[in-house]
Simulated scan of single mutants.
Amino acid sequence: MVLLLALVLFAGAIAAVGAAFAKEEPQGLARALAALERSGHAGQALVEEADPPFADRILAPLQARALAVGRRLTGADKADGIRRRLDLAGNPHGWTIDRVLSMKVLCAVALPVVVLAYGLLLGGSATTLLAVGLGAAALGFFAPDLYLHNKASHRADQIRRSLADAVDLLTISVEAGLGFDAAVQQVARNTSGPMAEEFSRVLREMQLGMSRSEALKAMGTRSNVEDLSTFVGSMVQADAFGIPIAQVLRVQSGEIRVKRRQYAEEKAQQVPVKIMIPLILFILPCLFVVVMGPAVLNAIDSFSAR
Rank of each mutant, 00 (worst) to 15 (best):
residue 155 R to F: 11
residue 175 E to G: 05
residue 10 F to W: 13
residue 19 A to S: 11
residue 76 A to M: 07
residue 220 G to W: 05
residue 30 A to C: 11
residue 250 R to E: 00
residue 93 H to C: 01
residue 220 G to L: 07
residue 102 S to P: 03
residue 271 V to W: 01
residue 7 L to Y: 12
residue 10 F to L: 15
residue 300 I to D: 04
residue 24 E to V: 07
residue 162 S to T: 06
residue 153 S to I: 02
residue 37 E to N: 04
residue 82 I to H: 06
residue 104 K to A: 15
residue 227 D to F: 01
residue 263 Y to H: 06
residue 179 G to D: 07
residue 49 E to H: 12
residue 294 P to H: 10
residue 150 N to I: 08
residue 280 I to R: 07
residue 177 G to A: 05
residue 64 A to W: 12
residue 99 R to N: 12
residue 290 V to N: 00
residue 17 V to E: 10
residue 245 I to Q: 01
residue 60 A to G: 07
residue 56 D to F: 03
residue 25 E to Q: 02
residue 306 R to G: 12
residue 1 M to F: 14
residue 288 F to P: 01
residue 160 R to A: 05
residue 71 R to H: 10
residue 59 L to T: 15
residue 218 A to D: 14
residue 248 V to R: 01
residue 259 K to Y: 09
residue 306 R to A: 04
residue 196 A to V: 11
residue 220 G to R: 01
residue 272 P to E: 05
residue 173 S to M: 03
residue 289 V to S: 09
residue 189 R to K: 13
residue 70 G to T: 04
residue 249 L to H: 02
residue 214 E to F: 00
residue 79 A to S: 15
residue 89 A to Y: 01
residue 295 A to I: 05
residue 178 L to G: 08
residue 35 A to G: 09
residue 93 H to A: 15
residue 236 V to L: 04
residue 200 S to Y: 06
residue 82 I to G: 06
residue 202 V to P: 00
residue 155 R to P: 04
residue 44 Q to M: 09
residue 114 V to W: 02
residue 289 V to P: 02
residue 114 V to G: 00
